[in-house]
């Protein structure tokens, strides 16, 4: 089988986010996260609960862009919010901005009163981040996304949660950020305290210098590691490649989000 493309490395890195979660609801926002969740269910976590992103729990992962296959449950929007409050859920959201402190913005760019660019709105990001395990997916890693400080805090980083008190930190659980270049966690510290973004691995063919150039704040590396020692994101296994190529995404929709 030919070498893995960047989008396939990313799909596997995303799938790994849910590997240890057990029987919880995976809520992927966007195409690669959806592919990753479905791959995870077919490989490392058969107990994972997946949906069509609308109102149905799917019994087995269908290919991207095709039908639903057998249905195992009903999850209209009102029940999604019930699960958010109840807890067994790991959401992977997008981020128009993500800052060093782990805050995310999907609301608007510029001042809230009259933004330069209005986006979707806060959606469920505030509630998700103080209620469920949360990861982020950034398809185009750039200094416009990775900023020193987001313009509007939609998704709540650790230090902001701590400021808000124990009700905000009780279930606050930021997990991973996967981009087209690298994987981060929130194990760093900055002047605001814990929960700062920390580089975990760079994808095959990407250097720490590449990631640094595409990030608008000083990178935190894993403790004790120099730029040359940062691990490389793992390559997909032959089984994973087969599942991505033959089963889950034969139409190669992944290439639209992360071109080779």
């Amino acid at each position: 089988m030919s070498e893995a493309t960047r989008s396939e490395v990313v799909a596997v890195a995303i799938a790994d986010c849910w590997a240890e979660d057990g029987e919880i609801f995976a809520s992927p926002m966007g195409l690669l996260p959806t592919l990753g969740a479905r791959l995870c269910k077919l490989t490392t976590n058969a107990d994972l609960v997946i949906s069509d992103g609308e109102s149905l729990f799917l019994a087995s992962p269908p290919p991207l862009g095709s039908g639903t296959g057998p249905i195992e449950g009903w999850i209209p929007f009102r029940k999604v919010f019930d699960v958010v409050a109840w807890g067994p859920r790991h959401v992977m959201m997008g981020a128009t901005q993500l800052d060093r402190h782990g805050n995310q913005n999907i609301s608007a760019i510029g001042p809230f009163e009259q933004p330069r660019r209005q986006l979707l709105g806060s959606r469920g990001a505030p509630g998700n981040t103080v209620s469920n395990r949360t990861s982020y997916w950034v398809p185009k890693h750039s200094p416009r996304v990775f900023v020193e400080q987001v313009d509007i805090v939609s998704g709540v980083g650790r230090s902001r949660a701590e400021e808000a008190g124990p009700a905000a930190t009780r279930f606050h659980d930021l997990h991973r950020v996967v981009t087209d270049l690298a994987v981060f966690d929130f194990g760093g510290r900055d002047e605001d305290g814990a929960g700062a973004l920390r580089l975990l691995s760079v994808h095959p063919g990407v250097s720490v210098a590449d990631v640094r150039a595409a990030t608008g704040f000083a990178l935190t590396l894993p403790e004790g590691l120099g730029p040359d020692d940062v691990p490389t994101t793992r390559e997909p296994t032959a089984t994973e490649l087969m599942l991505i190529r033959e089963v889950l995404d034969p139409r190669r929709l992944r290439e639209k989000e992360v071109p080779s």
Binding site: A125, P126, V130, E163
Partner: peptide, 28 residues
């Protein structure tokens, strides 16, 4: 936040002045 929005509708539907929710804490 979406959860706040739903909670606000619930409070109105139950004729309560407010309902508590975790959603929104720490956010802008």
């Amino acid at each position: 936040d979406e959860g706040m929005f739903q909670t606000g509708l619930r409070a109105a539907a139950q004729r309560l002045p407010f309902l508590p929710t975790r959603a929104g804490l720490g956010s802008d």
